[in-house]
Amino acid sequence: MSTVSAAMIDAARANDWDRLVTLEREMAALRDEIMRAAGASQEPLGAAEAARKAELIAAMLENDVEIRQHVDPWLASVRKLLSGAARDRAVRTAYGAFGP
């Protein structure tokens, strides 16, 4: 998951939203797989394993912050574009203007 998280940063930095979505799906699948494996395992983690797990989780959370810094402005512009298009359709409908 840590490797996928790092790749997600690269995709976000490059504004490669299709790749980011693909990686996000891959991350979700890995998370689900790990959760299933953790549920099946009855052995607790050792101290070193627990510490490493905590480090990886912290790094992925930091990656998430950077990813959001790239994604949030893009999402805001998409929302603005979509709301403008919806408003435009509403005006056309209200005033009976039909056209392209």
Rank of each mutant, 00 (worst) to 15 (best):
M1E: 03
M1I: 11
M1C: 09
S2M: 02
S2C: 03
T3I: 02
V4T: 12
S5T: 04
S5D: 09
A7L: 07
M8E: 04
D10K: 12
D10H: 03
A11M: 03
A11H: 10
A11L: 05
A14D: 11
A14F: 03
W17L: 03
E24C: 02
R25M: 06
M27N: 04
A29D: 07
L30I: 12
R31H: 10
D32Y: 03
E33K: 13
I34N: 09
I34Y: 11
M35C: 04
R36G: 03
R36L: 10
R36W: 07
A37F: 08
A38P: 01
A38H: 09
G39M: 05
A40G: 02
S41I: 01
S41A: 12
Q42T: 15
E43S: 14
A47R: 14
A47L: 10
A48E: 15
E49W: 07
A50P: 05
A54H: 04
E55P: 00
E55F: 04
E55D: 08
I57Y: 06
A58Q: 10
A58C: 06
M60E: 09
L61I: 11
E62T: 14
N63C: 03
N63I: 08
D64Q: 14
E66M: 12
I67M: 14
H70L: 12
H70D: 02
V71G: 06
D72V: 11
P73R: 07
P73F: 04
W74R: 10
W74H: 13
W74A: 15
L75F: 05
A76Y: 01
S77D: 06
S77A: 11
V78L: 10
V78C: 05
V78Y: 01
V78H: 01
R79D: 02
R79Y: 02
K80N: 14
K80G: 04
S83A: 13
S83E: 15
G84Y: 01
G84V: 10
A86K: 14
R87W: 07
R87V: 00
D88Q: 13
R89T: 04
R89W: 05
A90Q: 15
V91A: 07
R92A: 10
R92Q: 12
Y95V: 13
G96I: 13
F98G: 08
F98W: 10
F98C: 06
